[in-house]
Each structure stands twice: as structure tokens, then as C-alpha cells.
């Protein structure tokens, strides 16, 4: 079973994402901001990270930049999941090492399509 860390400051979004990901057969962990996510990744790197952009303490982009500098920080497949849906944000996310980008609102179909795109689902 593959693991996915859901990073979002909204408990509602985390809950929705958890339900979809568990249906897709992922084991799910949650973090409410980039710092919590980084702490978790330092203990164990998940296979996938579903990552919000705008969060308190450490935001999604700052987290991603920090993660990619960690030992084995290139391993997790990072899928941004943000309301920031313009080309500028998308380009910055890709440049920082994001593997995919979901523009909110999302549903099960979009998560499934994007996770398949990056090889997380066969």
C-alpha cells in the first residue's frame, strides 16, 4: 500500500482528500502546515504528498523547496493542490520540483487522473 501525506490547513479539505485517497488504496497521514509536513517527512518520506499552497507558518512552496534539499527529498511525488490556478503559480511550482498540479476545486476523478499521470496509480 502506498502512503500519501495530505498537507492542508483546512480540516475539511484534508478529510475529503483522505476519503478519496483511502478509496484509491493509499494509507493517509495529515499535516496542517508546511512545518508539520517537513517534521513528518524527516521521520519517514511518504510515496506521495498532496500539497496546498497557502498555509500559515510554512507555505506549500517553501515546504517543497525545503523538502527537495533534504536527503532523499527527491523521492516523494509531490502534487500541488491549490486555489492558485494561474500560469505564474503553476510555473513556479514546477520549477520548485512539483510533479503535478491540481487546481481546486477538485474531485475524485481529478485526483485519480493526476495520480495516474505521475505513476502513483497503475
Amino acid at each position: 500500500m502506498k502512503s500519501c501525506l495530505v498537507v492542508d490547513d483546512s480540516g475539511v479539505i484534508r478529510k475529503v482528500a483522505r476519503r478519496i485517497l483511502e478509496e484509491l488504496n493509499f494509507s493517509v497521514e495529515e499535516a496542517a502546515d508546511g512545518q508539520q509536513a517537513l517534521d513528518r517527512c524527516r521521520i519517514k518520506k511518504p510515496d506521495a504528498i498532496l500539497l496546498d499552497w497557502n498555509m500559515p507558518v510554512v507555505d506549500g512552496l517553501e515546504f517543497l523547496v525545503a523538502l527537495r534539499k533534504e536527503p532523499d527529498g527527491h523521492v516523494p511525488i509531490v502534487v500541488f493542490c491549490s486555489t492558485e490556478n494561474d500560469l505564474d503559480h503553476i510555473t513556479r511550482a514546477i520549477a520548485a520540483g512539483a510533479n503535478e498540479y491540481i487546481m481546486k476545486p477538485f474531485d475524485r476523478e481529478i485526483i485519480e487522473a493526476k495520480f495516474r499521470e505521475v505513476g502513483l496509480i497503475a
Binding site: I90, I94, E100, Y101, M103
Partner: peptide, 10 residues
């Protein structure tokens, strides 16, 4: 968002 890789969209 269905089938189109984000790099292609950008």
C-alpha cells in the same frame, strides 16, 4: 485536468 500533464498545460 483530466489526462493533460501539468507541464503540457503550462
Amino acid at each position: 485536468q483530466r489526462g493533460l500533464p501539468i507541464g503540457m498545460l503550462a
